[in-house]
Amino acid sequence: MKHSPSRWARSIALLAAVSVLASCGLPRVGPNKREIFAGSVQREGDAFIISVNDRVTRTTAVVPALGFSESFIRAGVVGSDTIRPGDTLGLTIWENVDDGLLAGETANATTLEEVQVDGSGFIFVPYAGRIKAAGNTPEAVRRVITRKLEDQTPDPQVEVRRLAGDGSTVSLIGAIGGQGVYAIERPTRTLSAMLARAGGVTIEPEIAQVTVLRGEKQGKIWFQDLYKNPEFDIALRGGDRILVEEDTRAFTALGATGTQARVPFESQSLSAVEAIAQVGGLLSASADPTGVFIFRNEPAEIANQVLGRTDLVGAQRMVYVLDLTEPNGMFMARDFVIRDDDTLYVTEAPFTQWNKTISALTGTLTAVGTITTTADSLTGASGG
Rank of each mutant, 00 (worst) to 15 (best):
R186E: 04
L89D: 09
L365S: 07
G380I: 12
A261D: 14
T211I: 08
D323R: 13
T259G: 03
L236A: 10
A128Y: 05
V319C: 05
S271Y: 02
S11I: 14
D340S: 13
T82Y: 05
V368I: 03
G380W: 13
G200V: 08
M330V: 15
I242A: 10
G121V: 02
E70S: 13
T110R: 09
P230Y: 01
R249S: 13
L149H: 02
L254G: 08
I276N: 03
H3W: 11
T59N: 05
A375C: 12
A196I: 13
E216G: 08
A235D: 05
V244M: 03
D247T: 11
A16D: 07
D341E: 15
E70P: 11
W222H: 05
D247M: 10
V210G: 03
D46T: 15
D99T: 15
G219S: 05
L66C: 06
F48G: 04
S271K: 03
L102N: 09
A198N: 06
S40P: 08
A315T: 13
Q152E: 07
I50D: 10
H3R: 12
G281T: 08
R237V: 12
A140T: 10
F122W: 06
P299L: 01
I123N: 09
L101H: 01
Q268E: 14
V20M: 09
F331Y: 12
F336I: 12
A47E: 06
S71P: 00
T290W: 00
R55C: 00
R249C: 12
R237K: 13
I207M: 03
N328A: 08
R143Q: 15
F293W: 13
T110P: 04
N304A: 09
I242Y: 11
A13G: 08
T347L: 05
T211D: 05
R262A: 06
P299H: 01
P299T: 02
S269Q: 11
M330Y: 09
S171Y: 02
V263Y: 00
S4Y: 11
D233P: 12
